[in-house]
Amino acid sequence: MSSHDVMPDMGLYQPVTVEDAAGIARQYSERGWLVGGGQDTYGWLKDRAKRPEVLIDLKGIESMRGIRETADGIEIGALVTLTELTRDPLITERYSLLAEAAGRVASPQIRNVGTIAGNVSQDVRCWYYRRGLNCYRAGGNLCYADTPEGMNREHALFNASRCVAVTPSDTGPALVALEAQMVISNGSSERVVAAEDFFVGPNVDITHTTVLRPGEILTAVRIPAKWANAEFYFEKVADRNVWDFALVSISAAMRVNNGVIEESRMVAGAVEATPRRLDRIEQAIRGKARNQETADEVAALAIQGARPLNYNHFKMPLLENLVNRAVRGHA
């Protein structure tokens, strides 16, 4: 378990089309590794905790860049950086929820190279797993975090199935709230998956965090016009205000008419392996005034079913409080 910090000897492909990239990815399957901004990649590789044979660098694929307006909203190329998301007028004016979420990812340096696709596809940050231990998520047969003395402060409150890691993505919950569609290509055909279904929990697939299969590439993210210019609320609470993962985050989109919530989407981050849709809250606030009273009335619903571990009980009041803020509309 000695530590390393230089890149291992491995192959590098730099395709310029999605078709070529998918073909290479298909050829190498689990032995290949797609890399965009590389912010989740290089740590794995330099630590020798993951050992793919080849890197498939997607940065040369121009078609995966840029933010475009479509008939029903916008399409964000997979390689759009998080910094670009925070600055693009289409995003900041219509979908400020996403801009805010992207602006809270890591640090400016990381946001400058980290991509939207990478942020939603990144692996979990459980320290045991990242250490390279052969836990369930790494294909092993046990979890080191979920034990009577495990150090699991950052881990899951909900829906843990053997693995108790949480989604580290800040933009993932925002995209689920915005009912984004994830465009996935295998080189010859495309499938479009709702953001909510894009993420998978350990109960379904313990070694992956998304529905992406070997040979598939997330090429774009589409956001429908439905939630454009809605009322949004985003907040991420982390130990540090820069370069840190969320302890809990909240992303909310609401249609409010005359102070009454007509429809909403509320999603929490860092409380389970996937962005957690808070549908009980959404139902409970429908038709109610967006105010403190409503917030106080419904917030506790957010933590029903929580199963805290040794050190993460605090996430329950934190989630409840963030839901309260999102409903009332201010910190």
């Binding site: 047969n141 046990l142 979890c143 979920d146 034990t147 009577p148 003395e149 495990g150 843990a160 053997r162 199963r307």
Partner: peptide
């Protein structure tokens, strides 16, 4: 006995070799 159930929480695995043999 090594997973979470409604009746108990999963314990520490003191002997990972033994766990492997069970598997």
């Amino acid at each position: 006995l090594n997973i979470n159930t409604p009746w108990w929480d999963r314990p520490s695995v003191a002997d990972e070799g033994a766990l492997g043999i069970y598997f």
